[in-house]
Design a protein around this nucleic acid. Structure first.
Lengths: 251, 251
DNA sequence: ATCATTGTTCGGCAATACCGAACGGAGATA
DNA sequence: TATCTCCGTTCGGTATTGCCGAACAATGAT
């Protein structure tokens, strides 16, 4: 290996296995993993045995194939407990949900995508699927635009995938959008992720003014943007909540 | 090392670090971890560097201490996608929530505790905290009793912690309770976890009849058990849902 | 019945990652 | 302000560690 920094081989390989297992819904066998990573079967088996032993991976008793283990779910939810941003924003998120009567989302930038770290359901209807831990495309959501606009490093975005007809797929157009977002302090996505759905978001900043997260709402276009653009009251609800959380973080 | 089975040292150590970081809300430093695990600082640093590199751990920029990383949240939620039990039970859980008008929980036994893998909020009020990924004490919940009663291996339960005055803390009393649960096919917890809260649960079995999970509801005692014992209709709602999911799993 | 898979085992070799001491900086104490 | 302690980090020698490739048994498809 050249350059970078000395890291432990087996741990890195173990992480690669976990990522691979997480990427698809399917269970994977030793041979499949070996081919994907270009490593001998025996080597992989050793790492897998260890991962099973610590509970990060489970093995299907009948087929012998491997899948992710329950311990990871535990670790993942522990991450949420540790996450300061989430802890400080829980109350404000509920308030925003009540005021706006829409579902509320809080996210962070992670590997170029939006990682959802909190999700308050819409007050009325249930029947909503839990989205915490999910990855959303950054360029097609208000949360993502806010995060990208506040990201000091350039965006190493993979090609902008079109989610709907209105998704911004041109990089220059996205750059202009991001400048607008940075200038006015909030972002919207107008049916760019899902037909008929609109989202509005504003940045959460730490004491140094760095954008560390975003909070926003999401709902039907008829309610959130009846006249073709986001309703003024919704925007101020969101911005107020974002400022409140930012203040909370500064303490 | 004697006996057991050959596992990879560094991966096992990495897992131990993650468990330690997950156990408390606090961030831990290299020295603290080194003391806790009885390993040289240098060794731990190498593993930590690798864990940071793969995103399993993050380092506080100011203090230099370590905390869990966002990638774990992603892996944890991927586990939910892979989990067949969860996938098959989603729809039935919603139905149960609507019929009972209470919050619905689905869990599995993991390291002697109940791991919550799904949680449907109560239809009316929101303001409920997300509980997926949380660990619940097995002896003080209906879900846990069902799982323990169906567990072929004995329960290596740590001392039965009292959560409320009504929590079963005597092991013999628990054993009798578990036999009752196994015999009649459902379990209840009467304010044993939380004052004023009652839960009812039934087992989910795979095609071989092995208990692989449990589904149940939880709510105020005035609604679920107005006469001092669980209402008959609630019990049948829960048992019906459990049977439905079990059938779904058998396909 | 044959063949091509699968997951698993094992032993030898050498590359690997562990270790312990030393370094520089931050905080607390006096 | 000077001292001292504790922090996270670096580094290089050493032998322990874990990687590898071939052989194995069991499974499923042809």
């Amino acid at each position: 290996m050249i350059g970078v920094a000395e890291t432990i081989q087996s741990v890195e390989r173990a992480a690669a296995i976990l990522r691979l297992l997480a990427s698809g819904t399917r269970q994977l066998g030793v041979a499949e993993l070996a081919r994907a990573l270009g490593l001998p079967k025996g080597t992989l088996h050793g790492i897998l045995r260890t991962l099973v032993h610590v509970g990060f991976v489970e093995q299907d008793e009948t087929t012998g194939k491997y899948r992710l283990g329950a311990t990871l779910l535990h670790l993942g939810s522990s991450y949420l407990d540790v996450n300061e941003l989430r802890a400080r924003s829980l109350n404000w998120a509920d308030g925003l949900a009540v005021r706006s009567r829409e579902s509320v989302w809080i996210g962070t930038l992670h590997e170029g995508q939006v990682l959802v770290i909190h999700h308050v359901f819409r007050p009325d209807d249930s029947m909503q699927v839990l989205q915490v831990g999910a990855h959303l495309p950054a360029h097609a959501t208000a949360l993502g635009k806010v995060l990208l606009a506040g990201d000091p490093y350039g965006e190493p975005l993979t090609p902008l995938a079109p989610c709907t007809k209105k998704t911004i797929v041109d990089r220059d157009a996205l750059d202009r959008e991001l400048e607008l977002v940075a200038a006015r302090g909030w972002a919207a996505d107008m049916e760019e992720l899902e037909e008929g759905e609109v989202s509005i978001a504003a940045p959460i900043k730490d004491r140094r003014g760095v954008v560390v997260g975003a909070i926003g709402i999401r709902g039907a276009i008829e309610r959130l943007a009846p006249h073709g653009e986001p309703g003024r009251d919704y925007v101020s609800y969101v911005r107020d909540a974002a400022r409140a959380v930012s203040r909370e973080l500064a303490r």
